[in-house]
Amino acid sequence: MSTLTTSLGDSAIMLRRNFRHTVRNPVTVFQAVLFPIVMMFMFVYVFGGAFDVGGGRYVDYAVPGLLVMALGYGLGPTAAAVNGDMTKGVINRFKVMDVSHGAVLSGHVVSTTARGLIADAAIIGVGFAMGFRPHGSALDWVAAIGVMALLGFALSWLTVAMGLAAKTVESAGMATVPLIMLPFLSSAFVPADKMGPGIRQFAEYQPFTPIIETLRALLSGGHASTTQAVAAVAWCVGLGLLGYVWAVSTFRKRA
């Protein structure tokens, strides 16, 4: 059996293991899938009327930001799970079983990305029930899904790296808080030009704003700014490469 086939087989086993852990943990399911829906109800029905988004319906404005936020809410359990594998001796058992090292990491990355996309599908479904009416074409939707998958993949690698670098399970979960909080300081729920000095500039130049604005343009059927789209892809690729290099180097030192 080739090395590639063995690695793919090991990755499939790790992926199945991680999905089983997710299904058996109600807290993870709530945090990754249900809590973003709770946030959606809160922002659209409770706070939505207080925000000026240029005359459009607030649910149409908020959904792209909520899609990005949904990708972040499932990161904490992944970081904790990765750290638990390292600190509880699970990795040593895998080494004895001759499981591919790459499969251990990729299993967490793929399962986290898939979990985030499931949460995004739930957000879109609930959004339609709440009046969300996108006007993007089929090609726009394909591009939007691609952006979400790329961002989810990048954040997953960064989360795995944080989990590997943390000293304890608790600190691993806390390390992902900035990734969860940054969308709040972006154009997710209110246009950046409506914000006060300082916060406005931060919102304009932080990673999530161009990603959210690109998704918003694609789903609305409008023309996505080339500058915003390039910045969105560049941020995703940059974060993904940072997470991958950091995760692999840390794993080699600790495993």
Rank of each mutant, 00 (worst) to 15 (best):
Tyr58Gly: 02
Trp157Ala: 07
Ala114Gln: 09
Asp10Gln: 01
Pro64His: 09
Leu242Arg: 07
Ala154Leu: 07
Ile124Thr: 12
Asp140Glu: 04
Met97Val: 13
Ser225Asp: 14
Tyr205Leu: 09
Arg115Ile: 14
Gly107Ile: 01
Phe128Ile: 08
Leu218Met: 07
Val104Ser: 11
Ala62Glu: 04
Thr214Arg: 04
Glu213Ser: 14
Pro134His: 00
Ala129Gly: 00
Tyr58Ser: 02
Glu170Ile: 09
Val90Lys: 11
Ala255Asp: 12
Ser225Trp: 06
Gly125His: 05
Asn92Phe: 11
Leu34Cys: 10
Phe208Trp: 07
Ile199Trp: 04
Ala165Thr: 10
Ser249Asp: 10
Phe132His: 00
Ala12Arg: 13
Val109Gly: 09
Val90Tyr: 15
Gly198Met: 00
Tyr45Gln: 14
Tyr61Trp: 08
Ala12His: 07
Arg133Gly: 01
His21Arg: 14
Phe47Met: 15
Gly125Thr: 05
Phe189His: 04
Gly89Trp: 00
Gly84Ala: 13
Val59Asp: 03
Ala247Ser: 12
Ala138Phe: 10
Thr159Phe: 07
Phe19Arg: 10
Phe128Tyr: 13
Gly243Arg: 06
Ser111Asn: 13
Val160Met: 04
Gly136His: 02
Lys88Arg: 15
Leu158Met: 13
Ser225Ala: 13
Pro191Lys: 05
Asp10Thr: 00
Ser186Met: 01
Asp60Ala: 12
Met195Gln: 09
Trp157Gly: 08
Thr112Ser: 15
Gly127Met: 00
Gly74Arg: 11
Leu182Lys: 06
Val46Trp: 09
Trp157Val: 02
Tyr205Val: 14
Phe41Asp: 05
Gly146Ser: 03
